[in-house]
Design a protein around this nucleic acid. Structure first.
Lengths: 360, 360
DNA sequence: CTGAAAGCGCTTACAG
DNA sequence: CTGAAAGCGCTTACAG
């Protein structure tokens, strides 16, 4: 088998010009129906696969997008990657990954590497506490609606609000919110939402894990059992990772969930449905977020270059804040376990199984 | 600012030919020292960034690799992605991601898409129960040393052996191994290793979660507490995901870890160091695996095309099976808690903190 | 509706 | 050591 067929092979085989073949394949220039059909047939017959390199060189578009996360080791990366890959792929784009391993300045280097590699645009999920400078190339930022320059994001604040309301409805009046970094817009929005829900209706205190670890060492106990003794009946973590830490610390300390206290998380990370009790959490609509990010990016690309303030996509107006979905599982129940047996919330609105998720 | 400078701009600015500029930049053709220096200087001055598209078109190499996992939603994906991205990037290659969402036949489609996108080669972590057909392009398979066609993998069997020995040393004589899919080579190797360790020294029974879920529904309790009553003192899961499920189910059932039983996992997934008690696990050397996979791939690419049986890389001979690292944390302790206080193993050989891993 | 021609930016023999 | 020329595969005005 010779090397891959190209336009010229098709043209020769049919005695037409490559321009016509190109037109027929792209459907751009006018080509007669019959010729078009014949060309496409011959193309298929020869197993023609267009050369992206050739196309890229002549059009100046690589049809490749970059995806940059501060740290692709983060458990949320799979969700982003999957959604972005899917949306990009639907739109005819490939996705190149970039990693900065959590390092702040490596973030810009990662972005630049992808640009040098010819990415037409970049989707970036910035590290907490950073924002993205103009890189002279289309960018879609996924961070938080409250972040300046944000393109699209989940409505974290409203997610927090709903989570807070969920806990209030269960009868909780004293919640401890568990956060990690106080410079994270996402976390702050979630926390603000939870607090807003509790305002005037109960007490909400806040624990920053990051600070505790700074003074007590990393991996230190969070002292949650003590809080329970002080009357806290619910723990609302801003990430399932911290919720998991809370659940296991409480269980280890002999606190029963959800009989004694409720625990909730955010993000519906992989283990949320797998642990016992399964974890009530709040999920981003990644598909939708990815779709919008990609659509925005492509629109910028098609307009040729960085988007200026005036060229916002009308279609995206007011849509940059995507509702989150509350997923109620077993870890949150009526306060103090006074509910009748069988009354405990255990709605599985999301498959609670590990069997679908273990490919290797 | 005009569009990016190219070789021709540099050539013009210096009154030399583009061929010479190209030679100087690539260091290939002979170019006088002074001219070379002048050219590189001018290139820097003009902010020259080579066009990958142009290079790709003329050399037929895109310098892009594809990374295909059956399901990039899997919690192991971040480790793979990070390591592969790093190794590839060091070697001057970009990484395009492909996803088949766990679907078997979508796996080949994902591979083909990446090839059509021009990937010079593909790293694939195949879904359990599948193998990779010849795709007429360099491939590096990361699965299990026992998989035919495997390029590089962790030594899962020996990992299992060491894990089994670890439990034996702690005094355990009755272990329940927790697996998911019986058609996974990786899992079978790990299980075989654990069993080998226990052979003649204790009892090892085997639980397949997949089968339990098929008959009792997904997310069903695994009945681990019952096993404890039957005398099982250790649970060795073949993945941290299942270990987590075991830990929480046991804790919820009032079984104390590691006082009553030990639990161990595999893969050192993100939560292993975060939960309480932190999880003893067995980690793959992803950096090394990625390095070898990438080196093999590039060597195949440089030899131009699919690797035939005779052209094995001498450097890689016998290195395709990479040792795993046992990470002892709190979840595994001396059997029956008979140890003196303070005698409990709680060596943190791996940072047990969530604070480094929450970028958003 | 169809085709000849130029050009995208680079590399690579081949001359000089 | 240096350069003129052809070519990688495609697209895009522009003629016909």
């Amino acid at each position: 088998m010779a090397s891959r067929a190209n336009l010229s092979d098709i043209a020769k085989a049919l005695g037409v010009s490559v321009a016509t073949v190109s037109n027929a394949m792209s459907g751009k220039g006018r080509v007669s129906k019959e010729l078009g059909r014949a060309i496409r047939e011959k193309a298929k017959e020869l197993g023609y696969v267009p050369s992206l390199a050739g196309r890229a060189l002549s059009t100046g578009r690589s049809h490749v997008l970059g995806l940059v996360l501060a740290d692709i080791g983060h458990p949320l990366f799979p969700q982003f990657a999957q959604a972005i890959e899917h949306a990009a792929s639907e739109a005819g784009y490939g996705v190149l990954i970039g990693d900065s391993r959590g390092d702040i300045e490596a973030q810009s280097r990662a972005i630049n590497r992808l640009i040098e590699r010819g990415a037409d645009g970049i989707v970036v999920v910035p590290r907490h506490g950073t924002c993205i400078a103009d890189i002279g190339r289309p960018v879609a930022v996924i961070d938080s609606p409250s972040t300046p320059g944000n393109t699209v994001a989940a409505d974290h604040r409203n997610g927090g609000l709903e989570m807070g309301r969920h806990l209030l409805e269960l009868g909780h009046r004293s919640v401890a919110i568990i956060g990690l970094h106080s410079d994270s817009n996402v976390q702050n929005d979630r926390i603000a939402g939870i607090r807003e829900a509790f305002a005037g209706k109960g007490e909400a205190r806040l624990i920053w894990i990051g600070e505790m670890e700074r003074s007590h060492g990393s991996g230190c106990p969070l002292g949650l059992v003590g809080l329970v003794e002080e009357g806290v009946t619910a723990f609302a973590a801003v990430s399932d990772l911290h919720a998991l830490r809370a659940i296991t610390e409480l269980q280890q300390g002999g606190v029963s969930i959800p009989d004694d206290v409720s625990v909730t998380g955010f993000d519906d990370l992989i283990w949320a449905g797998v642990i016992a009790p399964s974890l009530t959490t709040m999920r981003m609509d990644m598909e939708r977020i990815a779709e919008i990010a990609i659509a925005d990016l492509i629109s910028q690309i098609d307009q040729g270059g960085a988007r200026d303030a005036s060229s916002d996509l009308p279609a995206l107006k007011g849509q940059s804040s995507i509702p989150m979905e509350l997923i109620i599982r077993q870890s949150s129940g009526p306060v103090l376990g006074r509910a009748a047996p069988g009354d405990r919330t255990s709605v599985h609105r999301w498959p609670a199984s590990s069997s679908a998720t273990d490919p290797v």
